[in-house]
Nucleic acid binder design. Structure first.
Length: 484
DNA sequence: TTTTGAGTTGTTCGA
DNA sequence: GTCGAACAACTCAAA
């Protein structure tokens, strides 16, 4: 007879919430004691979060621990090779089953598949659930049975697949086990930076409550202007839900439902809501791509790019990382990233395009920098978006699309507010010159207190020359149909 | 099977 | 100042 008091372990990973959490719901409904577990995983082959992401994780875990405590439960923390820790804890507590929410990066899939088999071998139940996606990455197929490689038809299929959106509420109370297993002290993990603490300018409110608040603020305040406002880095009418979604503090089904409901209540929001849901669907598309290409972060999706002659100019790379390229839009974005752990989407495209096309530096170098510095760095979105900019990705930007930092600045930061905020040494410069300070007359620069090459760098590369160089380099790529 | 139309986010040049 | 074409050629999805 199975022991009705044998607990269920809910292994939390990137699903740090209580509502719309099918695994937790199933555990609570079983009537068994529930042991919530988080493992700081050290499994080889599983990509560890970067420094900025660890800052977010620290706070999110504190929030989750508090939310669990309010339900009579306790978050158990452990560090090491996850499969060993989970299996050991299951044995120690006499658990009847282990449940979790599925992840879709290659390392996690290998780890979880092996663990599930091992648990079942030792007579336990193990079940995984979908909490992270609207649609499983294997679910949508083209009419000929293939996986989607172009976004627009993918979106069409995704929208057609969306049916019932009823979601589980957070459990009100979780049954505690007779005794709690021991837990690490979160402080001892030192996820929060010290000496120096570079996180003082970070914002965002990690945790489920913060995610809900952000969603409702976005729907109420910014959705109406989303279609236009999302492209203006200084105004920022974006949802800013990316980190919450990455850590699973909110699920895409909750977001989808809220946007649809808002458009239903106020029909004039429909166009903006559709635009937003299409952006949310890129997250789904990127996960589909990652699932079918586990090496997305290290290998060109389009192999034709394998022969691209990347440059390895360290000084230019250092200038890019530090926001000292001499191109104000690029520098503003990179400094916002460094200071806050976030970069506006428009600035990400400009900065990424600059690294790849102006400096001809391998997109993987940029991907790794973003991985370490973004609080929302995601196994699917980060490499997929870098490959999209590079032109090596799925449904990617064509190679001749080379962002002009000046043109983008004039279009999306006309008054220079974004540059003034993040590149304060240019704050007093007339808007006419703020995106190209080297074109300003000497007396204008002097009046603004700018000395090029001293207070603010001269451009690390000439835009026109870099553009021509990039077009030439891309032209040299062998066509996939050309015999070697 | 073959064909057809389409494909997130741009820039520059020349009429 | 505005506007269309060129920037290249390919792959994908569906008919």
């Amino acid at each position: 007879m199975p022991d009705p008091d044998a607990p269920v372990i809910v292994w939390f990973r990137r699903d740090l919430r209580l509502a719309d959490h099918p695994a937790l719901h199933a555990a609570a409904r079983s009537g068994r004691p529930v042991i919530p577990l988080y493992v700081l995983d050290e499994t080889p082959g599983v990509r560890a979060p970067g420094a900025a992401a660890r800052w977010w994780l620290d706070r999110s875990l504190r929030a989750l621990a508090g939310d669990l405590q309010a339900r009579g439960s306790q978050l158990i923390l452990s560090r090491g090779v996850a499969a060993e820790i989970v299996a050991d804890l299951a044995e120690e507590t006499g658990a009847a089953s282990v449940v979790w929410s599925r992840l879709y990066d290659g390392g996690a899939i290998v780890r979880d598949t092996a663990l599930k088999a091992a648990l079942k071998d030792s007579g336990m139940e193990a079940e995984s659930f979908n909490a992270a996606l609207l649609s499983e990455p294997w679910a949508l197929k083209t009419k000929t049975g293939g996986t989607y490689k172009v976004f627009t038809p993918y979106l069409k299929a995704l929208r057609a697949s969306i049916g019932d959106m009823s979601l589980h509420d957070a459990p009100k109370r979780l049954r505690a086990p007779r005794s709690w297993p021991s837990s690490d002290d979160l402080d001892a993990w030192a996820l929060h930076p010290r000496r120096p603490d570079w996180s003082t300018g970070f914002d965002g409110t990690p945790g489920e409550a913060g995610a809900q608040a952000r969603l409702h603020h976005f729907i109420d305040q910014d959705l109406a202007e989303y279609a236009r406002g999302r492209d203006v880095p200084a105004g920022d009418a974006t949802s800013r839900l990316s980190a919450h979604l990455h850590w699973g503090e909110i699920g895409p089904r909750q977001v989808w439902r809220a946007a649809e409901a808002a458009a239903h209540r106020r029909p004039h929001l429909q166009a903006s809501a559709d635009k937003y849901l299409s952006e949310l669907s890129w997250r789904e598309f990127n996960h589909e791509i990652l699932f079918h290409h586990p090496d997305l972060a290290t290998a060109n999706y389009k192999p034709a790019f394998d022969t691209f002659p990347w440059s390895d100019t360290h000084t230019a790379l250092a200038a890019w990382k530090r926001g000292r390229t001499g191109y104000p839009m690029v520098d503003a974005g990179m400094r916002q990233l460094w200071a806050t752990g976030v970069m506006h989407n428009r600035a990400r495209m400009i900065a990424a395009s600059f690294l790849i096309k102006h400096l001809l530096i391998d997109w993987r170098v940029g991907e790794r920098w973003f991985w370490d510095t973004l609080v929302d760095a995601d196994e699917a979105n980060n490499p997929a978006n870098w490959q999209w900019v590079a032109g090596s990705g799925a449904d990617a930007s064509p190679f001749f699309r080379i962002f002009s930092p000046m043109g983008q600045g004039e279009r999306f930061d006309a008054d220079g507010a974004y540059v003034r905020r993040w590149v304060p040494e240019l704050a007093k410069l007339d808007a006419r010159y703020i995106h190209a300070p080297w074109t300003a007359p000497d007396e204008v620069l002097a009046r603004a207190g700018v000395t090029l090459g001293q207070t603010y760098p001269r451009p690390v590369v000439d835009h026109d020359a870099a553009r021509r160089r990039a077009l030439d380099a891309f032209k040299g790529l062998s066509s996939p149909l050309t015999p070697p």
